[in-house]
Design a binder for these strands. Sequence first.
RNA 1: GUGAGCGUGGCUCAACGGUCAGAGCACUGGACUGUGGCUCCAGGGGUUGGGGGUUCGAAUCCCCUCGCUCACCCCA
Length: 424
Amino acid sequence: MPYLQVPKGTRDIMGKEIVLWRKVEEVVYETAKNFGYEEIRTPIFESTELFTRGVGEGTDIVQKEMYTFTDKGGRSLTLRPEGTAPVMRAYLEHGFAVQQPRVKWFYLGPMFRYERPQAGRMRQFHQFGFEAIGFDSPACDAEIILIAWRIYERLGLHKLSLEMNSLGCPSCKFRYIETLQQFLQREIHSLCDTCKVRLEKNPLRVLDCKNEGCQTIFQSPSFPRLQDFLCEECSKHQETLLATLRFLDIPFSINPRLVRGLDYYTRTAFEIKTGELGAQDAVGGGGRYDNLSQALGGPKVAGVGFAAGIERMVLLLNKMGQGLHALETLVYLAPLDGEGELHLLVLGRRCEELGIPFYMDFADKTLKYHLKKAQKMKVRFVVLVGKAELQNSLFLLKDMFSGEQWTLSQEELLKKLQEEKNSA
RNA sequence: GUGAGCGUGGCUCAACGGUCAGAGCACUGGACUGUGGCUCCAGGGGUUGGGGGUUCGAAUCCCCUCGCUCACCCCA
C-alpha cells in the first residue's frame, strides 16, 4: 500500500453507496418538514466543557472517547461526540429560553468518538437527530418516537424493536441511586471490577452490566427496582406516554434495565434495535433531558429527542438489497476528435439547460471505446460526432438498447431526447 | 483499553521453506482502420503492509510495528 490511507475508523463514502445516503437524508428532511422541525447546523467542534458538563463527567464518552485538542489560542476544544448538548448550547446562547422557549429542531452530520472500530461503528460516524425543547407533555415524547418510527417506515426498515424505560426525574433518580448504592455496597464483593468503579461514578450503569456475578445480584428479590422509586408525576408521565404509543399503534416492550450512557437523560429513555447488525444493534435512541439546560448553567428547560446512526441504517438498507444506480445519465456524448469535442460540449450545455442529464468523455479515444463505456454505464443514448457529422452540422444518435440510429440536426436531437426523458 | 482472526497486482484469491510469485475479473491495444455485449490474441501493472531475525534459501517460520476485520466494553 504505497499511498496514504484514511485515519483509523474513518472511510470514504462514495459510489453506489451514496445513493442510499441521499435516500436517508431525503427521508429525514421530508419527515422533518412534515412534522414542523427546523434544521440547525452547529459547529463540528465545541468547547470541551460543553460535553464534560452536558454529557457528564462520569460517562464513557467523556472519560475515554472524546477527540479533544488545544488550539493555538490555548482553548480546549472537542470534536462533537453527539448532537444534543450542542443544540441545547445554541438554544441557551441565542436566548431562546426567554424569547421563544418552545422550539423543534433537527440536525444531521458527522460525530466523533475515539473507539475501536467494529461492524457498524466508526470513529467518524453520522447521526441525525430531532429535539423538541420546552415541552413537558408526554405527548411530545410520543411525537419524537413517532418521528423516528416514521423515518424507519418510510425507508422500509422493518423488524425493528422499540424498548422503553423511565429513569425518573432528578429527585426520584437521586433517591433511587442512594438506595442502589447502599444495596450494592453490601454486595460489593460479588461486583465486577468495572462495576465497583461505576458504583461511585455512575451507579445507574451497573444496571446493564452483563457480567455474571453482577447479574445474580440483580436477580435478588430485595434488589431495588427503579420503577418503585418513581414519583407520582414521573410514573404518570410514563403511563401517559405508553398509552399514547399504544394509541399510535407503535409496538414496544418495557426494559427496566435500559439505561442511557449520557447523564442528561431523565424520565423517558428508549432505544430502537435491530437483530441484523451483530453486536452494534442500536439504530436509534433517545429520551427526555429535562436536566441538561441546568447542567449547562441555564434555567430549567424541558427537552426530549432522539438520534439515529446513518451508517447502521445504510448497512440495513444494503442488506435488504436496495436497487442502486450511481448516476441517471440519459445520453453519452462521444466525440471522435478535438473538433467534435467543441460541438458536443455546446450540445451538452443545451442538454443541461433542458434538464437532460448527460455525460461527456473527453478521452481521445476510438468509437469502440466510447460505445463500450456507454454500455458499461448503462446509458441509453449515445450522440456521436466525427468528421462526417461535422461536415453537415449533424449529430448521430444511437439507441443502445434497440441498436437503432438516426442522423439529426441539433434541434431534432434535443426534441427527441426531451421526449425520451419525459416518457422515462 | 482487552481478546481473536487476517494483510500477496486496482478487485477476488493461488503458490509442500526451494527456479523468474501465478490465475480470474478489471484495464489497454489488436483480430474488426467509424459501431457496444460474445470469442480469440497480446500488453501494462507486485521491493508479497513496513522493519528486524532464523536459514544456503522466506510470501511461507519467529519477533516488533502499522493497518484491516470481528468480539468484549460502550453506544448510534
